[in-house]
Design a protein around this nucleic acid. Structure first.
Lengths: 408, 408
DNA sequence: ATAATTTGTGCGAACCGTGAACAAATGGTC
DNA sequence: GACCATTTGTTCACGGTTCGCACAAATTAT
């Protein structure tokens, strides 16, 4: 018997590089360039990837064979020289995105490149959600939206959930607002929806961060922090272009940084968490409104402030101050390019930003002051977009590999 | 003239992979395995890297030719089979590490693998440090310590500084304790010390974090936070095995997270920074001692606490509580495996840890509670070790490339 | 119509890791 | 001491990959 003992190690290490890795990496480069920069000519692809024309030709032909892209007839662009054919995404390859909120469930289908093909949302009465019901609802919603989109081949599925998600396990570890505890959502969904590629589950704020980073207000930033708030306050961090996960994928729970150790008690059991000061309940309470009225009440609050009502403005200034205190902390810790405000901080941006900036001026270390504070530009669709990006991740990293695993 | 226009793009993108990248990546794998796991047999290297025996043979021979490693005669290990030669580091390849503190300057030489060959420290009176003097001192110290080490070939130099460092520029942006402002330390040192490879400058706490992560208390952790305090409080974050830098390398200024918005004013201009509550001044003040007495006074404080003096113990409990408040925030944000306490939190660990843990129990989100809080095991040498690791980074990433650029 | 410019195509060259066959070196067994 | 099993180094043909050149193709400018 020949001694192939450690010539091909069975279990552990894909650490080393072989020729095939080069091909995979370059295919990934090409497909990623297309995904993030839109349809490009082969000539553009040479510039983006640094590969030669010969090599790009091979990559494109391989991606075409895999059914991921196709080439459109060259079109003259007015400059001299032979025109280069445009490499475009196939119309029947897409990712499925699912969003599980407290009062609604949504599903959408996105084509490579980020174009939305279809979207559906199912509203629900605001109450605890039984897991089985949610799974069933997601199933029908997914089937419907896939039909709307023309039943494309699904390359992967991303699910965004309000709650702590153990990403490696695709499990919802804790979702108090849904009443969920240790729900293996990935596995459960795999039984409910078929032929939807690999299913990955993520926290909604982390996914929004991912979305704003790739297609939103953080597009040009390498280091970005996303902050979103309604009742709870969540966030996500993009460090050096990649999402911060932490040990189990829980990183980014910035709603629970302590800003006021002797302040109000938080639902999490702690005292003085940031979200007790900048959450919607604190804001409404300061404005003399019913803290339980939710997001709609916030909208009316902006109106009141626009009309110059004093209590409304004071409430916004106070909330903006606390917002600024926490943002200062985040800037000092992360040294980001930009901080993106989502949720009610997006709609209320104009009313809050001055108080925030005032706080930053004294609290941020001078050399770190360059960080921009901007409102989200993707708004409510950020979660679905982020879920789709997460779903695309595998296909972008290993295009032919995932395609061939789909086709089985 | 042939059209090589975009066949080989001049300026920007080394994004793509070519055959040479494979070789470089695998050489990096092999040398890194040796650097982080100590001398290994060629057989071990197969297991660590996943490469075949044939390939490892080529890599090792190339590294040998470059003068980085050499093979020791095979030694039987008691098991059957042909013994494998041990690949060991060359004795005359090393990195230079420099540490610039307020009251001392230090330099050390480390061999590949992390072994210290020589170390020197130059104490100074505690005062502002003129840049030119510091440069000159570093120069003589470096020359002396290199002579001590037997004048090895220096593969790279790392410098750790108390202050904000713009890593990409190797510039000390702000170092209030030294009285430095926008000092291009990398360039200045390049004129002072010759033949010391590429010079990189980093923040001392970030470098300590790096050191603890690779060779200290965070060796087995992927996500680690290092926290160190004397007068000021600094830190560094290792996320997914790599140091968090932020936009300009300033990330990790965790001493300036706001824990007490209406508390004491901080030297940075803000109010209620963490370091105003857990810095040595606050601790000594609470214990009824002179806040300006510094680290020595802290040592006596531990003694007082050991003897059961009430004010000392109360001061430690109060400080531990604030320590716990901030650590909770960090855990909720980063979801780390482990938090490493350095500086006076290492020497005072036993006196502080209970109060810290008590605070964590209420303030850390339940699913995030697994994080371990441990004392630094590298102690005062962490900065130099981290500086050396930073210096090694280039050589580990591209062994032959850096060697040939050194030999010119 | 001709030149200049840009790009696709085809092919040989260079490089790299793989894996099989063989040789070398050790421990265990009879 | 002879032999076998085991493990590892060495050699080499092979397949895979990108590169770079030469040439052809397609467009604009003159």
């Amino acid at each position: 018997m020949p001694n192939t003992t450690n010539q091909s190690p069975a279990d552990p290490a894909p650490r080393s590089m072989r020729s095939a890795s080069v091909r995979t990496a370059n295919l990934s480069q090409v497909l990623s360039a297309l995904h993030f920069h839109g349809p490009l000519t082969r000539s553009d692809l040479c510039a983006y990837t640094g590969l030669t024309r010969s090599s790009v030709a091979v990559q494109v032909s391989e991606l075409t064979d895999a059914g991921l892209v196709f080439e459109q007839a060259p079109q003259s662009d007015g400059r001299p020289g032979r025109p280069s054919p445009l490499v475009t995404f196939s119309t029947d390859i897409a990712a499925l995105a699912i969003e599980v909120e407290v009062d609604s469930i949504a599903a959408a289908v996105f084509r490579l490149g980020g174009e939305s093909l279809a979207e559906r949302r199912l509203a629900r009465t605001r109450s605890q959600v039984r897991v089985e019901d949610a799974i069933a609802d997601i199933g029908t919603l997914a089937r419907d939206v896939l039909a709307d989109a023309g039943s494309p081949t699904i390359i992967g599925t991303g699910v965004g959930v309000v709650g702590l998600v153990e990403e490696a396990e695709n499990t919802v570890t804790m979702a108090p607002n849904l009443g969920w505890d240790n729900v293996p959502l990935g596995q459960l969904l795999a039984n409910e929806i078929k032929d939807c590629g690999e299913i990955r589950v993520g926290n909604e704020a982390n996914l929004s961060a991912r979305a704003e980073s790739t297609r939103g207000a953080g597009r040009d930033a390498n280091d970005m922090i996303y902050l979103s708030g309604e009742v709870g306050v969540g966030g996500g961090v993009i460090s050096n272009g990649r999402p911060l996960t932490g040990r189990s994928g829980f990183a980014g729970e910035i709603g629970h940084l302590t800003v006021n150790p002797d302040g109000r008690s938080c639902g999490c059991g702690s005292i003085g968490c940031w979200e007790t000061e900048i959450g919607i309940r604190a804001l409404l309470e300061r404005a003399g409104l019913n803290p339980d009225d939710g997001a709609d009440a916030a909208e009316t609050l902006w109106d009141h402030a626009d009309r110059g009502e004093e209590q409304a403005r004071d409430a916004l200034t106070a909330t903006g101050r606390w917002l600024g205190i926490g943002v200062s902390t985040l800037i000092n810790i992360f040294n980001p390019d930009v901080i993106v405000l989502g949720g009610m901080y997006r709609t209320g941006y104009a009313h809050l930003i001055d108080a925030v900036r005032a706080e930053l001026e004294t609290r941020v270390l001078p050399p770190l002051r360059g960080a921009a504070i901007v409102p989200s530009i993707l708004g409510d669709s950020a979660i679905l977009i982020g879920a789709a990006e997460m779903a695309f991740e595998h296909a972008l990293a290993d295009p032919i590999g995932t395609m061939s695993s789909i086709r089985t």
